[in-house]
Computed example of a mutant assay.
Amino acid sequence: MRIALVLVVALLASLAVLDWMAPDAESRRDSAAMPLESGAGDPGAGAQLFEAECIQCHGADLKGTQEGPPLIHPYYRPDHHADLAFYMAIRDGVVQHHWNFGDMPPVPVIDRDQARDIVTFIRQAQREAGLLDDTGDVAAQ
């Protein structure tokens, strides 16, 4: 019984130290290159960044190429791939899962604000293609 009590106390003390050492949520978002707040980025800037960094795989019309999948596709609507999935793909890359193009590598030259612009551009293009309604919700099919 005494050993169990010592182990429980040691575990609780360890958890307290880990909690004290853990960064707060804002610091975690900063280090993860995630957006600090939700909201629209600049779709014009996103289009320019997309052209510079993404077009070779995802295509000028966002309908994909021989190198990468289409982003104008129901798989990439917010109900299947939330904005966070795009941020994480840019930051970390993606293991192939819907398509057979191979893994997507990370894109380290794009920071979180630029990623927000790219996501805004993609969502705007999806809206224009009829995948999303004017509010950004999934359009009725």
Rank of each mutant, 00 (worst) to 15 (best):
K63H: 11
Q114D: 03
M1L: 13
D30P: 04
A125Q: 10
V138S: 02
E51A: 15
Q96C: 07
E67G: 08
L84R: 12
V8E: 04
D117K: 06
I72M: 03
S14F: 13
P69M: 13
W20V: 14
L132G: 06
G136Q: 06
D92K: 01
Q126A: 00
V109A: 14
I72H: 05
A47S: 11
I90L: 09
Q66V: 12
A140G: 07
A85K: 05
T135G: 14
D83I: 02
Q56S: 12
L11R: 12
A22T: 08
A25L: 13
I122S: 05
L12I: 07
A125K: 07
Q96W: 06
Y76I: 00
L131G: 08
G39M: 04
I55H: 14
P43T: 05
S14Y: 11
V9K: 10
E67S: 12
P106T: 08
L12N: 07
A47N: 09
R123Q: 07
W99C: 00
R77E: 13
A60K: 08
M104V: 05
L71W: 02
R91H: 13
Y87E: 08
P35C: 00
A22F: 05
M1H: 15
S14K: 09
A45N: 14
P70W: 05
R29I: 08
P69T: 10
G136H: 05
I55T: 15
M88Q: 13
L18E: 14
Q56K: 10
F86W: 05
P43E: 05
Q124G: 10
C54I: 00
D24Q: 08
F50C: 01
G46P: 11
Q48H: 14
G130N: 04
I90C: 12
P69K: 09
R116T: 09
D42R: 00
C57F: 00
D113H: 09
A129W: 00
N100P: 13
P105G: 15
N100V: 11
G64C: 03
D117Q: 03
M21R: 12
H58S: 03
V8G: 06
L131M: 06
E128W: 07
V17E: 09
V138Y: 01
L71D: 00
R2F: 09
A85R: 04
A52W: 11
C54S: 06
I122P: 02
L18K: 14
P35H: 01
